[in-house]
Amino acid sequence: METLSIAKSFEGTQGVYRHRSDACQCDMTFALFLPPQAKDGPVPLLWYLSGLTCTHQNVMDKGEYRRIAAELGIAIICPDTSPRGEHVPDEKDNWQFGSGAGFYLDATQQPWSTNYRMATYIAYELAELVAANFPLDMQRQGIFGHSMGGHGAITLALKNPGRFKSVSAFAPIARPSVAGWSRPAFEKYLGPDEAVWRAYDSVALIEDGHRVPELLVDQGKADGFLEDGLRPWLLEEACAKAGIRLTLNMRDGYDHSYFFISTFMADHIAWHADRLR
Results as ranks from 00 to 15, higher is better:
residue 15 G to P: 10
residue 20 R to I: 00
residue 24 C to W: 03
residue 25 Q to V: 00
residue 25 Q to H: 11
residue 29 T to F: 03
residue 29 T to K: 06
residue 31 A to F: 03
residue 38 A to N: 06
residue 52 L to Q: 13
residue 62 K to E: 10
residue 62 K to I: 02
residue 66 R to E: 15
residue 66 R to S: 10
residue 67 R to C: 10
residue 67 R to S: 13
residue 70 A to L: 02
residue 72 L to N: 14
residue 74 I to P: 02
residue 80 D to F: 01
residue 83 P to A: 08
residue 86 E to A: 15
residue 87 H to E: 15
residue 91 E to C: 09
residue 91 E to H: 08
residue 96 Q to N: 12
residue 101 A to D: 15
residue 112 W to V: 14
residue 120 T to S: 09
residue 121 Y to T: 07
residue 130 V to S: 14
residue 133 N to V: 00
residue 133 N to I: 01
residue 134 F to R: 13
residue 140 R to P: 11
residue 146 H to I: 03
residue 147 S to T: 11
residue 150 G to L: 01
residue 154 I to H: 13
residue 157 A to K: 04
residue 158 L to F: 06
residue 158 L to H: 08
residue 163 R to K: 15
residue 165 K to C: 13
residue 166 S to P: 14
residue 167 V to E: 13
residue 180 G to Q: 02
residue 185 A to W: 01
residue 186 F to S: 14
residue 192 P to R: 07
residue 199 A to K: 07
residue 210 H to Y: 12
residue 214 E to D: 11
residue 214 E to S: 08
residue 216 L to F: 13
residue 221 K to D: 14
residue 236 E to Q: 13
residue 237 E to S: 14
residue 243 G to F: 06
residue 252 D to V: 14
residue 257 S to Y: 14
residue 258 Y to M: 06
residue 259 F to L: 09
residue 267 D to I: 05
residue 270 A to M: 04
residue 271 W to E: 05
residue 276 L to C: 08
residue 277 R to N: 02
